[in-house]
Every structure is written in structure tokens, then in C-alpha cells.
Simulated scan of single mutants.
Amino acid sequence: MSVDNQGPGRPPDTPWLAPYLTVADPERAMGWYRQVFAFEQGFVRRGRTGEIEHGELVVHDQKVMVAPAGSPGGADASPAMSGVTSPVTLFLYVPDTDAVCQRAKAAGAKVLLEPATMFWGDRICKIADPDGHLWVVATHVKDVSEEDIHQGGLA
């Protein structure tokens, strides 16, 4: 069987790697990500009773997928539901780190690192979303040479 899918093993318009986040309430989580990160709503599959079984959000040329706990694509529970710190951090470039951090905080995120300009030239903020997923939002504010990045990392 031959399928034209922009490369072997993936459907059209799908990135090669997409995070799949387990959340307590996909409807709420997708609204949160749209409000805070300005993600666009993508494909949503609903179950017989109308609940979201699988949801997709789009940011630039990337996709973030969400599913409720226990679904085939998700885990048994989100980090917050499990009471653990997520071992994974998602790194997202945005036009204005400070504005996104402020929106996240107002929408219930836990700010783990207030906005700060780093030695490698990015202004970043680190948050935990309401489901416990960790995010670093960054805005590139200054080009820095590899040598200066190395020196900055040693300071």
C-alpha cells in the first residue's frame, strides 16, 4: 500500500515530533493554552457524551496534543494529578516573554522563574501550568557568540 504523506510514516501537515500532554480536563486545558500561549485550536475528537478524547493545538508550524488521563494516547495521570514534578520541560519561543508570563500567572500557573535575560541571549520565564506541565517561554533578545555563551555558562 502506498500513501503520499510527505515522508514515510507521518500524515500530511504533521510535525515529526509533537508533545502529547495528559490533562485532567482537555476542554479547560485547551482553553488555557489558547489564552496564555495564543495557540490556535486544531483538530478535536469528542466522545459519545461530548467530552474531548483527543485535542490538537497549533503554534506556528508545531502541534501540541492533549488527552484526558487514561486515554490511549495519554498517560494514567497528569503530573499535577500524580503529585509529581514533570521530568520534561517544553521550551516555547514567544514574541514577548514578560506578557506571556503575566498571562500565565493570572490564569493560575505557578511561576518557577520570573522573567530574566540569560547569558545566551534569551529572556525566559519558567512556569508550571495547572496540570503540572513545565514550560520555559523565551524571547530571543540578543545574539551572543558561542564563545561568549561558553564563558557565560562558566560564570
Rank of each mutant, 00 (worst) to 15 (best):
Gly132Phe: 03
Lys105Thr: 11
Asp131Glu: 10
Ala128Tyr: 01
Gln62Trp: 10
Leu134Trp: 01
Gly132Gln: 02
Gly42Leu: 12
Arg45Gly: 08
Cys125Asp: 08
Ser78Trp: 02
Lys126Arg: 11
Pro72Cys: 04
Tyr93Arg: 11
Thr49Phe: 04
Gly74Arg: 09
Ser82Asn: 06
Ile124Met: 09
Ala104Val: 03
Gln41Asp: 15
Glu56Leu: 03
Val136Glu: 12
Gly152Gln: 08
Leu92Gln: 10
Gly83His: 07
Ala67Trp: 01
Leu92Gly: 01
Met65Ser: 14
Gly70Ile: 13
Pro87His: 02
Val44Leu: 14
Val100Gly: 01
Gly73Phe: 04
Ala104Arg: 01
Ala77Asp: 08
Met118Phe: 13
Cys101Met: 01
Asp76Trp: 08
His60Lys: 11
Arg46Cys: 04
Asp148Ile: 03
Phe39Lys: 05
Phe39Val: 12
Asp96Cys: 04
Gly153Cys: 10
Gln62Ala: 15
Ser82Thr: 03
Glu147Met: 11
Gly47His: 08
Pro130Gln: 01
Thr85Glu: 12
Gly73Leu: 05
Lys126Tyr: 00
Arg46Gln: 12
Ala99Lys: 10
Leu112Gln: 01
Ala69Leu: 04
Gln151Asp: 11
Asp148Val: 06
Gly121Ser: 13
Asp61Gln: 15
Arg103Val: 06
Met65Trp: 11
Asp148Glu: 15
Pro115Ile: 06
Glu114Asn: 06
Glu147Gly: 12
Thr89Asn: 06
Asp98Ile: 01
Gly152Asp: 07
Gln41Gly: 13
Ala106Gln: 12
Thr117Phe: 08
Val141His: 13
Ser78Leu: 06
Leu134Val: 05
Val44Glu: 15
Lys63Trp: 08
His140Cys: 11
Ala138Tyr: 01
Ser145Phe: 06
Pro130Ala: 04
Gln151Glu: 14
Asp61Ile: 07
Ala116Trp: 06
Val58Asp: 07
Val84Thr: 15
Val100Met: 05
Arg123Val: 02
Ala116Glu: 15
Ile52Asp: 07
Lys105Met: 00
Thr85Pro: 00
Ala107Phe: 06
Thr49Ile: 06
Val94Arg: 04
Ala67Arg: 03
Ala99Trp: 00
His133Phe: 03
His150Trp: 10
Ala104Trp: 00
Trp135Glu: 05
Ser86Ala: 13
Tyr93Gln: 12
Ser86Phe: 02
Glu53Ser: 07
Pro115Ser: 07
Phe119Gly: 02
Ala80Arg: 13
Ala77Gly: 09
Ala107Asn: 09
Phe91Val: 09
Ile52Phe: 07
Asp143Trp: 08
Thr139His: 05
Ala67Gly: 15
Arg45Met: 15
Pro68Lys: 03
Ala75Ile: 06
Leu92His: 04
Glu114Phe: 00
Asp76His: 11
